[in-house]
Design a protein around this nucleic acid. Structure first.
Lengths: 160, 160
DNA sequence: ATGAGTGCAAAGGCTTTGCATTAGG
DNA sequence: CCTAATGCAAAGCCTTTGCACTCAT
């Protein structure tokens, strides 16, 4: 399964990189009796090459021989087992990225004009404050806290 | 334009309520040369009756004689002029709520299982911390900060 | 009066599904 | 081997659009 060369984009604080990601994903899929097929490797490979969530269109554009239905079906499986995450940003088109326990916890900076998404990390102290406050809040509301999502909206330099 | 009685749900710190909302919306629409038609009043009325974002389906279910296309078109207009906000939560179905400058700034507590959405308010101190951190962050990234969205995911009491 | 807004139905666009074929373990 | 996964095309589902009619201003 050929992997076309791709320049890696601005890397976040990668917890895992390159080959490590594949073996990690392989392990996880094995654990749940799922196969790590060529198409799944391809999808993971593409997602690993970018430091921001991709649309299904984009995933297909950056790979070859990926049937549309396979991409949809595989992303569903990969999401089910917490290997990728579906993130919703501006419009309603779904975007996917590797799970945070692979790439590290981060948030999204979204241009409200053109929709471009950039991964960002906020100070650990703030994350702590947020988690504390939300923990109290969910308790009060009878919810079991799972995780939070902090999206930042603004205009990117190009869209002034 | 009949408005079926609806029990108002757990009210947040309402900045405006009932009739006030209609006159406020009326004013805003006038300002941009838009008409406040019966259908638009109906939509606003339904949204005002709930303290959490509604899907288009739900909006239609809680009103009468609203053509599907009119709901879509009106929500587009209302969103354009910052009277309602489209919020995306779990899946990809759009949900709408009154703009924050009408209802007050808040966030969403979303059940990752059943998708129910509850409005929540976090401590002002936390909001301040967040805004400060994000302001610094967006500056660094060449973005102009507009607003943030903090969604909390967890399991509601029913979904344990 | 008169153009924005409405309703109906048809068209779009992304996503899901059915089914025969292929391939991973 | 033997079932999960794939590819293709058809079907679904939410959303948008065209067009004639209606109603706010």
């Amino acid at each position: 399964m050929p992997r076309r060369p791709q320049h890696r984009q601005a890397s976040r604080s990668d917890k895992l990189a390159g080959a490590e990601i594949h073996s990690e994903v392989m392990t996880r899929l094995r654990r749940v009796h799922q196969r790590y097929t060529a198409q799944r490797r391809e999808i993971i490979g593409v997602l690993a090459n970018f430091s921001h969530p991709l649309t299904i269109q984009e995933i297909r554009e950056h790979s070859i021989d990926l049937a549309q239905s396979s991409v949809y079906r595989n992303l569903l499986v990969l999401e089910e087992f917490n290997i990728v995450t579906r993130v919703v940003t501006n419009g309603e088109i779904g975007r996917y990225e590797l799970a945070e326990d692979i790439t590290g916890h981060h948030h999204h900076l979204i241009c409200s004009q053109c929709g471009v998404v950039r991964d960002v990390v906020v100070p650990p102290a703030l994350e702590l404050d947020i988690d504390q406050a939300l923990s109290a809040l969910t308790g009060r509301e009878g919810f079991t806290l799972e995780h939070h999502r902090l999206d930042v909206f603004g205009r990117c330099a190009e869209c002034t």
